[in-house]
């Protein structure tokens, strides 16, 4: 008995340490970034454009560019991703070859490294279609990149909606689409939102693929055909070209803040919207 107890205690300790390691790593990284970055973050840093390649001035244009690219890729990917998930889970027959093919494609796409998407976007959107380095090329590339994530998480969320909801709704005389729109999608929305948040995280953090497709212009983009530099790309260039470590950390701090705000807003929004509507 004693040895069993001892072993239990030891194992519990090991698991506890593993959990602690996760928390600690996160704390150290975030703490370090915050400590190093917070001193350069002020009103001017957030609201004025970069000067002298980023050595001076702020990061306002990169914040705006990030917003444009994230929004652009979501506008393109969310409708297609959710719609295809609805098709696969609600309309396609179980043994449909087409559904099998789509599932396989989504899974494969999800595993492809982002730089490959970047290369494709560069060759296809930037050069072949002649869109140049632009928000449009970047957003299209990012949309393709996050599409599998949105599709898969939406599929899972739709699948998790109890079958009884659908049966009850149909038995009340509701049509299939009415059932999907009024019951299935609202019930699946928190899961779908999780996929969208993950995708935003990916888009905000992406560098290589965007360097190839959206370029690295520091100017304020005036339209979707203008090139743009996101915060992550800016951070990469600041650090890589030794322009300013201080400002690189400042940018990193803003990126983290950005992600935290998005997560919190999504979480809060979900709580407000669900489980109750009206």
């Amino acid at each position: 008995m004693r040895t069993v107890n001892l072993r239990e205690k030891l194992l519990t300790g090991v698991f506890w340490l593993a959990a602690l390691a996760i928390a600690a790593i996160l704390m150290v990284i975030i703490g370090y970034v915050v400590l190093k970055g917070i001193s350069s973050v002020n009103f001017e840093f957030l609201f004025s454009p970069p000067a002298r390649a980023g050595k001076e001035g702020g990061i306002s244009t990169t914040i705006i560019s990030t917003l444009y690219l994230v929004l652009g890729s979501l506008v393109l990917a969310v409708p297609i991703g959710v719609a295809s998930a609805v098709y696969l889970e609600e309309y396609a027959h179980k043994n449909s070859r087409f559904a099998y093919l789509v599932n396989l494609t989504a899974e494969t796409l999800a595993g492809i490294p982002s730089i490959v998407f970047g290369l494709f976007g560069f060759v296809f959107f930037v050069i072949f279609l002649g869109w140049g380095w632009s928000i449009l090329s970047g957003a299209m590339t990012m949309a393709i990149m996050i599409l599998p994530t949105i599709t898969r998480t939406s599929q899972e969320a739709i699948l998790a909606v109890p079958r009884e909801y659908r049966e009850n709704s149909l038995a009340l005389g509701a049509g299939k689409w009415q059932t999907i729109r009024k019951i299935v999608l609202p019930s699946a929305l928190p899961g779908i939102a999780t996929g969208i948040i993950l995708s935003i995280g990916r888009a905000v953090g992406e560098t290589a693929a965007l360097l190839l497709t959206a370029g690295s212009s520091l100017g304020m983009p005036a339209s979707v055909t203008d090139p743009a530099r996101t915060m992550a790309v800016h951070l990469y260039i600041l650090a890589m070209e030794g322009i300013s470590m201080e400002r690189a950390f400042g940018t990193a701090f803003v990126i983290i803040l950005f992600i935290v705000i998005i997560n919190y807003a999504a979480h809060y929004g979900m709580k407000r919207l669900f489980p109750l509507k009206k």
Binding site: E164, Y165, S169, A171, G173, A174, K182, I183, F274, K277
Partner: peptide, 29 residues
């Protein structure tokens, strides 16, 4: 079929209220 199911209601084995308010559940149909 819609008219048929309106005329012939069904109660299932597992009680399943929709994830909305009591009012909205009844008003759904």
């Amino acid at each position: 079929v819609v008219a048929l199911r309106k005329k012939v209601g069904m109660v299932f084995q597992k009680p399943s209220a929709f994830p909305m308010s009591i009012y909205e559940n009844v008003a759904y149909g």
